[in-house]
């Protein structure tokens, strides 16, 4: 069992993971709210799959919840993927387009 100290350390480490560089508390609130929002949004998205079949939706929801706990702060990855670098945008546009075509053509 960890002491109070180590729990504090754990929380601190987790929180610091959110921001890179100099974290101010006004930036931190943004990141932490963003994280919570993302988690909620992703869970809602997973639950959308109930329109295909309800069990699939439940399984997916469980999987997503597990993945979220496992991968830690999602917000960093999200911020990285949302940079306006041309390569990244191009990559995501291609993925989107492929998904749209795949879903409509063979869905």
């Amino acid at each position: 069992m960890g002491s109070i100290d180590s729990l504090y350390d754990k929380v601190k480490r987790f929180v610091i993971e959110f921001t890179s560089g100099k974290g101010t508390s006004s930036a931190m609130t943004g990141y932490m709210t963003g994280e919570l929002q993302t988690v909620a949004f992703i869970m809602i998205l997973a639950s959308f799959f109930r329109i295909f079949s309800v069990p699939l939706g439940i399984v997916l929801l469980a999987a997503v919840v597990g993945a979220l706990f496992f991968f830690g702060p999602m917000i960093k990855a999200m911020e990285r993927e949302n940079s306006s670098g041309l390569n990244r945008v191009l990559f995501w546009v291609m993925i989107y387009f492929a998904v749209i075509i795949a879903v409509t053509l063979w869905g």
């Binding site: 930036a27 990141y31 963003g34 929002q37 993302t38 949004f41 999200m78 911020e79 949302n82």
Partner: peptide, 12 residues
């Protein structure tokens, strides 16, 4: 909607 609003949270 989701990505936009989350990214808006992060801006300084």
């Amino acid at each position: 909607m989701m990505i936009g609003v989350v990214m808006a949270m992060l801006q300084t």
